[in-house]
Design a protein around this nucleic acid. Structure first.
Length: 277
DNA sequence: ATATTCCCCTGGAAGC
DNA sequence: TGCTTCCAGGGGAATA
């Protein structure tokens, strides 16, 4: 569900609720999410800790505690957070509950349990957790640029869409924003990445950055599940040009062309056969 | 090494 | 109405 703009939105919304609060207790309601959930370990790890910061790396959320300890949280497809009073009973699909010292609780909700809550230890404050070392550059930084794309494409046969969704190449881009960026850049998702020239690479990189920045402005995209910590929906859905629009006229070509759907790497792609080449 | 396919899980929508 | 099938924003393991 959540890609970079949704995770960024959630981090911004979560921060004021948890930063500088102290964790008193951790409760889990299931044995496992994506990986095993060890309640005693989580409790020992978090007990008495003050939340120093909440930040994002790709689609991962890093909750920094003191002394380089951190929680690594991934939202998977349906993960979300809610802040509720200590007295509120457990609701459906609440998987991990942190009790804070201000009489509130911070709860991780995840219907499909594709999410993940792990503990980690950083080498230094503000450092990258070792578990995330293989991640590619952040798309909204200078480290992600056309030469990186060209270099990663060399000698590769895979479709460009698969490449930009590969978190080792660039982080944070999932199915929706890959689809939208390719539409904006007029690049067909099936195009072999090695067939992307320097000009097209520049255009595509710019479109990836722009679509992610736009989506952050609108608080992300809500198709069905996504909600921020305060329950608000992402408004970027109204600005999707291609995603989910199979059979509709292309926003660029008008009635001259119809958006098509195909399946790549097991996920739906949407594109205009006329203006995306 | 590289590129697909399968699978984890649940619920909502569409089809019959 | 009710049952079945398909589909979903992610990612990692298994497989060609």
């Amino acid at each position: 569900m959540p890609e970079l703009p949704e995770v960024e939105t959630i981090c911004r919304c979560l921060r004021p609720h948890v930063v500088n609060k102290r964790i008193t207790t951790v409760r889990t309601t299931v044995d496992r999410l994506r990986s095993h959930l060890d309640e005693p370990h989580l409790q020992a790890f978090c007990h008495g800790e003050r939340v120093a910061d909440v930040r994002r790396r790709g689609k991962h959320i890093i909750v920094e505690l003191s002394q380089c300890k951190a929680l690594l949280i991934h939202l998977g497809m349906t993960g979300a957070f809610r802040i509720r009073p200590q007295s509120a009973p457990f609701a459906d699909h609440e998987r991990v509950i942190w009790c804070l010292d201000d009489d509130t609780t911070w709860r991780f909700i995840d219907v499909r349990r594709f999410g993940d809550v792990r503990t980690s230890v950083l080498c230094a404050e503000r450092d990258e957790p070792p578990e995330l070392r293989d991640l590619g550059p952040e798309p909204l930084t200078e480290a992600f640029n056309a030469s990186v794309l060209i270099a990663a494409s060399r000698g590769r046969q895979r479709p460009i869409k698969n490449m930009i969704m590969d978190q080792r190449f660039v982080v944070g881009v999932g199915n929706i924003y890959a689809t939208e960026a390719l539409f904006r850049a007029r690049v067909r998702p099936q195009r072999a990445c090695r067939r992307i020239g320097p000009g097209t690479a520049e255009r595509l990189v710019a479109c990836i950055k722009q679509v992610l920045a736009d989506a952050i402005e609108w608080g992300g995209t809500t198709i069905s599940d996504f909600r921020s910590v305060d329950g608000t929906e992402g408004k970027f859905r109204l600005h999707l040009a291609a995603y989910g629009r199979e059979g509709e006229p292309c926003p660029r070509c008008g009635d001259a062309a119809t958006i098509r759907r195909c399946v790549q790497a097991g996920r739906s792609s949407f594109y205009c056969p006329q203006c995306q080449r």
